[in-house]
């Protein structure tokens, strides 16, 4: 665990219900290195946000981590509780949520929100914290930053609010940022601004980023590596260029193919028939087999395919064209 900022090993999250135990996150493994952006993609209900929340200790009961380990900078963090977790959260992990309005306190000036975070986690004076808050706002591209410290969140537009949230996530200089759909609520032009900002800040500071999104275009442009999740499991994990251009797992292939971007010039979009299985009725073996055109008997039986250090969790990964592999 030398280079990795965050290591997730066999992480499993379970929700006990009257109908049995549901597993929204099922034995996932990945690392995020310093300065790296790992994209997590998947459709609603694939468990991508649940995995992010598990890392930062924000799982709502009755959901809880029932297996596996989470390591942050060489320290195991999945068993931390209460005060220890709270301290870790602000200092070492920054969080950017989808809706910038609900992640800021509407009753506090943004300068106070920024200084509060810094005073809590860093050993600095109030004056210095205020100066750094202004610098942080300036860095995320808010004009006249020093004056805007006394503004309330409602005085900012959506894109500007998301910049404030990013400044807030970065102000204690965390080593990891979890960005959960940071641009989904924003317009295309503002989305491009926020993505460029995230990329620049992480490159300059060497912060690791977990970028959770359902937008393949954003992943392709932003991430270094990408993890594709399906029904709580990792379907594919690899270099973003390889995964997007030559997907190995049939689900990844279907997902990429069904975006209108990839079907350019086709009369009909490629579609994956059916829908993701419910957590209450998870199929045996590979979770994707009922929708998979290549499925064989081995796919329907346990043990299910796993990544095991390879790229895709599939018995029959799609072969790459010969000239590419040569």
């Amino acid at each position: 665990m030398s280079e990795a900022v965050l290591s997730i090993r066999n992480l499993t999250v379970e929700i006990p219900t009257r109908g049995g135990i549901l597993r929204p996150v099922d034995q996932i493994n990945y690392d995020i290195n310093r300065g790296e952006i790992l994209g997590i993609v998947g459709e609603s209900g694939a468990g991508k946000s649940m995995a992010g929340n598990a890392v930062i200790g924000l799982l709502n009961r009755p959901a809880k981590i029932t297996g596996g380990e989470i390591w942050l900078n060489g320290t195991r963090i999945d068993q931390l509780e209460g005060e220890d977790m709270r301290r870790l959260r602000g200092k070492h992990i920054g969080m950017v949520f989808q809706d910038p309005l609900t992640s800021l306190n509407p009753l506090l000036r943004i300068g106070d929100q920024l200084t509060e975070t810094m005073l809590e986690h860093l050993d600095i004076s109030r004056d210095k914290a205020r100066k750094r808050a202004a610098a942080a706002l300036d860095e995320v591209g808010i004009p006249a930053a020093a004056q805007r410290l006394d503004s309330y969140p409602h005085e900012f537009s959506g894109g500007m609010r998301q910049r404030v949230v990013i400044a807030l996530a970065l102000c204690a200089e965390p080593s990891l940022i979890i960005a959960d759909e940071p641009t989904t609520a924003l317009d295309v032009s503002v989305q491009a601004q926020i993505i460029a900002l995230l990329k620049r800040l992480c490159r300059d500071r060497g912060t690791a980023v977990m970028l959770i999104t359902h937008d393949m275009g954003v992943i392709a442009e932003t991430a270094d590596r990408v993890a594709v999740m399906y029904a709580g499991r990792l379907a594919e994990l690899g270099n973003v260029r390889d995964v997007v251009t030559h997907p190995e797992h049939p689900y990844t292939d279907g997902l990429m193919g069904s975006t209108p971007l990839a079907s350019k010039g086709l009369k009909r979009l490629r579609q994956i028939s059916g829908s993701m299985p419910r957590l209450t009725a998870m199929p045996e073996g590979c979770a994707f087999h009922p929708r998979c055109e290549f499925a064989q008997d081995i796919c329907r039986a346990e043990p299910r395919p796993k990544l095991n250090g390879g790229r895709s969790a599939c018995h029959f990964p799609i072969q790459q064209p010969a000239e590419e592999t040569a």
């Binding site: 537009s157 894109g159 500007m160 317009d187 295309v188 032009s189 503002v190 989305q191 491009a192 601004q193 993505i195 460029a196 990329k199 937008d215 393949m216 275009g217 954003v218 392709a220 442009e221 973003v240 260029r241 997007v244 251009t245 990429m256 975006t259 971007l261 990839a262």
Partner: peptide
């Protein structure tokens, strides 16, 4: 032109663009 340039592309790996300035 600005809108089309800002839209994410599937083959835009590591694309560095100057994002559009300003807001509506």
């Amino acid at each position: 032109q600005m809108l089309l340039a800002a839209a994410p592309k599937m083959d835009g790996f590591g694309r560095e663009i100057d994002p559009p300035q300003g807001e509506i």
